[in-house]
Simulated assay, not measured.
Amino acid sequence: MKASNILLLPGWQNSGPDHWQSRWEAAHGYQRVEQHDWMRPLRGDWSARLEETVADAEGPVVLAAHSLGCILTAWWAAHTRHAAKVRGALLVAPGDVERPDLAAQIHGWAPIARQPLPFPAVLVGSRNDPYCSFERAEGLAQAWGARCVDYGEHGHINAESGLGDWDEGHGWLMQLATPV
Rank of each mutant, 00 (worst) to 15 (best):
E98G: 12
V97A: 00
N158E: 05
E138F: 00
L117Q: 08
A103N: 03
D96M: 09
A110P: 04
G155V: 03
E135L: 10
A77N: 05
P100F: 02
V92G: 12
Y131P: 00
V124E: 09
A78G: 12
G155F: 04
G95Q: 12
V122R: 15
P116Y: 14
T73Y: 01
C70H: 05
A89P: 06
A64Q: 08
H82C: 11
G95W: 00
L90T: 10
L72Q: 03
L63E: 06
V97E: 01
S126D: 08
A84V: 07
V62K: 04
P100D: 04
E135P: 13
Y151I: 02
G108V: 10
L117H: 12
A89C: 08
A103M: 02
D129C: 13
V97D: 03
A159E: 15
P118Y: 09
H156P: 05
A84F: 08
K85E: 04
S126K: 13
G152S: 09
R81H: 11
V92L: 08
A110V: 09
W75Q: 08
C70F: 00
G69C: 14
Q105A: 11
A104Q: 12
I112E: 11
H154P: 06
E153V: 03
A104R: 14
A77L: 07
A141F: 05
G95T: 13
G88E: 06
L102D: 02
Q115P: 04
A77M: 07
A141C: 14
A104G: 08
L102P: 08
V124H: 14
A141K: 09
P111Q: 03
L91D: 13
G108M: 08
A143T: 13
V62F: 07
T73E: 09
A78N: 07
E98I: 10
G139Q: 11
P100R: 02
R127Q: 15
G152W: 08
H107F: 03
G108S: 04
E160F: 05
D96F: 06
E153I: 04
A141N: 11
V61Q: 14
V86C: 13
R136A: 15
A78Q: 09
A77T: 06
G108D: 01
R114E: 03
R81F: 03
E98T: 09
H82P: 00
W76L: 09
